[in-house]
Design a protein around this nucleic acid. Sequence first.
DNA 1: TTGTAAGCGTTATCAA
DNA 2: TTGATAACGCTTACAA
Lengths: 330, 330
Amino acid sequence: MAGIRDIAEKAGASIATVSRVINGSGYVSPGMRARIEAVIAELQFRPNAGAALMRRGKSRMVGVLLPALDVKFFGILAHVIEQALFRRGYHAFICCSSESPEHEAEYIAAMLAQRVDGVIIASVASDAAAAARLTAAGVPIVAVDRAIAGAVTVKADHYAGGRLMAGYLTGLGHRRIAVIGAPEHSTPVQERLAGVRDALAGAGLEPVAVALGAKHGFEACRDLLLGLLDRGLAADAVIGLTDLAALGAIHALHERGISVPTDVSVIGFDDMPLARYIIPQLTTVAQPIREIGELAVEQIVRLMTGEALSDATPPALSVVVRGTTAPRKT
Amino acid sequence: MAGIRDIAEKAGASIATVSRVINGSGYVSPGMRARIEAVIAELQFRPNAGAALMRRGKSRMVGVLLPALDVKFFGILAHVIEQALFRRGYHAFICCSSESPEHEAEYIAAMLAQRVDGVIIASVASDAAAAARLTAAGVPIVAVDRAIAGAVTVKADHYAGGRLMAGYLTGLGHRRIAVIGAPEHSTPVQERLAGVRDALAGAGLEPVAVALGAKHGFEACRDLLLGLLDRGLAADAVIGLTDLAALGAIHALHERGISVPTDVSVIGFDDMPLARYIIPQLTTVAQPIREIGELAVEQIVRLMTGEALSDATPPALSVVVRGTTAPRKT
DNA sequence: TTGTAAGCGTTATCAA
DNA sequence: TTGATAACGCTTACAA
C-alpha cells in the first residue's frame, strides 16, 4: 500500500506538504494541492491511522460502551450517538459488554489501547471499576442512562417518570395498582419503582403487588403477572416499569380474559416503537432518548476539547396517552 | 502514559522481552514474566495500538458496516457478529451507514485507515462501489443479508421464503392474496416478493394487490393497506414482506373492523420479537439470523487467515405458525 | 509557500 | 532465554 512518501515523490513535493493536504493543516498552494490530491487518488492512498495515532497521541475516536445492541433502547441510543459523533468529526468505537464483566474489561482495554479521546458509557453494575480505569488513564467519560458516581451523567429522571406513571393512574381513579418490571438489576428500573412507590404513598396508597423479573423480555413479565393473577390478585391497573413489561402484563391479562383498558388499565415506560405495535396502543411515559444521546455527545465533546460543560438537561418526561388506560370502572 | 520502555527499565529487562510477554509470543522464563507483569500492572501500562498497528500492518479488527442499528434486525445482527468476533479474538469496528453514501464512504475510508483485517457488510445500494474499494485494497469482505456480486455472501434464501409464505397461505385455501412491504429498495424484500409471485403463479394465481412503501416502519404499510381497502380491495389473506409490514396490515384491518384471522389471514417474515408482541401473535417465516451472523464471522475469519471457506449454509427458513392465520372461510 | 529531520511506541530479526 | 537494533508511516517544529 502506497505511503505518504510515494505520494510526495510522484507529486514532486515533500512529505510535509503531503501531510498538510491530507490533514488540511498549514498552507499549501492550490496548484500543489491539486497535484498531490491527484496522486493520492491515483495511487489509492490511505493514510495509516496507526502511524497518525502514534505521532498525535489522539485518535479522534470515542468509545461507546453499551450493554447490548439487540435491545431496542440501546440500538436507538447507539444510532443517535453514532450520528451525532459523526457530525462532529469523530468516529464511534461501539462495543457491547453483553452484561459480561470480562467483555467489558476487554473492551475498556481495547479503548485505552486505541487511545480513544473519550468514552460514553451505559454499562452494567461493574461500571464503577470500568469508569475508574478510564479516568485513571485521563480519558474523559460521560455516563448515559445509568449514572456513575463522580462522572458527568446524562439521563432521564426515572424517578420523576415513576411518579408520573403512578400519578396518571391515580388521577384516573385507580387505587389497586400492581407493578411489574425487568430487568431487576437495572438502576433506571429501580428508580422508576421508587418514584411509583413515593407517589402512591403520597396518595395514601401502596402497590397491591410488585414483581420484578431477572431478564429483559416480555415473557418473564407476563409470567410474573400470570402468577399473581392466579394467586388472586385483584388490580385496577398495572404499571409496567418498561414498555416490554407493560406488554407482558397485557398478554397476561388477555390470557385470563381480563379486558384492557375496560377492566384494567396498563401503562408503560420508554415509548419505544413497540408501544404502538399492540392493539390498543400502549399508554406510556416517553423518554427523550434522542435528546439524551445528543446531549451525551455534546458533553463528551466539551470534555474532550476542554470547554465548559453545557448546563442543558434532557427534556422532561411526559405521559403519552393512548389506548390502554381508562378511568376506573365505577 | 507509560511505554514498553519504562516497563523494561523498571523490570530490569529489555523491551524485546516485555513485548514478548505482552503478546505471549516467544519464550520468557516464568520469573521474568512474573516480574514484568507486575510492573505492567503497577504502572497501568496500556500498549499503544497505533504503534502495534504500524509495525504489524494488521489490526485484529473487523469492520462491520450496517445500514442502521435502530432497526431490530440489524441490532441483533450487530450483536451476534460482535459476540462471535470477540470469541475469536477480534474486535468489531461497527459503523452504520444510515443509508447515506457519504457516511458509508467515510466509514470505508476509516476502516481502510484502521487497516481492518476484514469487513462484514450489509449495506445499501451503493455497495458495489464500497465493496470494490475494499477489495481493491486487498481487504477480504463478506456480504451479509444482501448479496454483493463477486463477494462471499451469507444470507437467508429470501426467494424461498417468499414461496413459503405464499405456499402456506394457498395451502390454507386462500386465493385472494395481497402483498404489503417496505422498504421497497431492499433487495431481500424484492426477492421475497419474487418468491411470492412465482409460488402464486405456480398455483395459477397472482396477487390481488402489491404495495411497497419507501420507508421501514409499520405506519407506512398500514396506510398502504388502508388505501387499498378503501378502494374496495377484497382479500382472503395478506402477506407482509417483513414482520413490521404484517403488523401494519393487521392495524389497517383492525381499523376497518376486519377480524384477523377470522376474516383475513396475515403472515409476516423475519420472526423478530415483535411477532410475539401482537395479540394474536403473528404467523411468520423465521429467518435464522443468529446463524447467519455466526456464519458470516466464520467465513470472514477463514478469508483473513487464508483457510478454505466453509461450505455450510444457513439453516432453511420455516413457517412459524401462530395466531394470525386460519383456513379460508367457507 | 515548501522542505528537513526528529521522533512517536511497538514488533521482529538477529545475535549472544 | 534474553538483548540490541532497525524499521513501520506519519506529524510537526524549525528552517529556508
